[in-house]
Simulated assay, not measured.
Amino acid sequence: MNKKMHHYTDGGLKNVWLQNGFEIRSTPYGKGVAIHDVEGLTKAICLALAEKSSPLSGVEFRYIRSGGMLLSQAGLGTMMGADAQSIARWEKHGRLPKWADKMVRVLYMAHADGDQTISSVVSRVSAVERLINQKIVVREVRNKGWRSDLVVA
């Protein structure tokens, strides 16, 4: 049986089609798509983007940053020696400097390949960002006093 492919548009991608690894399900809101192994799919897409011969688009650059490395614009900017506004501008307008295109590919490939130095830097930057963006939520629990939780904003 020839199964229909699914146009995968996560993160604004326009050129990704899934041959399998998904199910169409009925939901209370209509038809929905359940993706198997989203983390593995994200890695496969990021590797394909990092290895493609043409320049990355802004959407592809953002997908590698946010989906592949789980970094904010500021976090990737820190690693690349650029400010968050530059990263945002490249993603929005799709005009990346050649060095930024090459650097994000190298960073992602090393990260995906398990390079300990790069992976630890990516993890450290991501952890620092989570700490910076945390807020303390305090609630009163009946007969038990106050309780607090750290929540990523």
Rank of each mutant, 00 (worst) to 15 (best):
21 G>L: 04
56 L>W: 02
151 V>S: 10
53 S>M: 08
132 I>G: 02
3 K>M: 13
41 L>S: 05
95 R>T: 13
64 I>D: 00
109 M>R: 12
7 H>T: 11
25 R>L: 12
35 I>S: 01
73 Q>P: 05
134 Q>P: 00
85 Q>W: 03
6 H>R: 06
97 P>Y: 08
106 V>Q: 11
65 R>C: 04
35 I>Q: 03
121 V>Y: 09
150 L>F: 14
130 R>D: 10
66 S>Q: 12
132 I>A: 07
100 A>C: 12
62 R>W: 08
39 E>N: 10
54 S>N: 13
11 G>C: 09
145 G>L: 07
63 Y>L: 05
151 V>P: 04
54 S>P: 00
77 G>H: 01
144 K>A: 13
27 T>S: 15
75 G>P: 06
108 Y>W: 07
98 K>Q: 11
70 L>C: 11
148 S>N: 06
16 V>S: 09
124 R>V: 03
119 S>D: 08
88 A>S: 15
109 M>G: 02
82 A>E: 12
81 G>H: 09
20 N>F: 06
12 G>Q: 01
129 E>M: 03
136 I>A: 09
22 F>K: 03
93 H>K: 14
79 M>A: 09
50 A>N: 05
142 R>C: 02
89 R>I: 06
72 S>K: 03
27 T>R: 09
9 T>V: 11
84 A>V: 04
126 S>E: 05
18 L>N: 02
80 M>Y: 06
42 T>K: 10
87 I>E: 01
27 T>V: 11
76 L>G: 03
42 T>C: 11
149 D>Y: 11
113 D>R: 15
82 A>M: 13
139 R>S: 12
107 L>G: 01
99 W>E: 14
40 G>L: 08
106 V>E: 13
141 V>Q: 06
62 R>V: 04
115 D>F: 01
56 L>R: 02
142 R>W: 01
128 V>S: 07
56 L>A: 05
6 H>E: 12
52 K>I: 04
137 V>Y: 09
66 S>R: 10
94 G>M: 06
43 K>C: 06
54 S>D: 14
122 V>C: 04
30 G>V: 05
29 Y>M: 11
43 K>V: 07
113 D>C: 08
143 N>I: 03
105 R>L: 10
152 V>E: 14
122 V>T: 02
98 K>F: 05
59 V>P: 02
111 H>S: 08
50 A>T: 06
68 G>C: 08
91 E>V: 04
138 V>R: 12
106 V>P: 00
20 N>M: 01
50 A>Q: 06
78 T>K: 10
72 S>Y: 05
117 T>P: 00
24 I>P: 00
68 G>Y: 01
125 V>G: 02
41 L>I: 10
111 H>C: 11
32 G>T: 11
132 I>F: 07
72 S>R: 06
83 D>C: 07
115 D>V: 01
25 R>F: 02
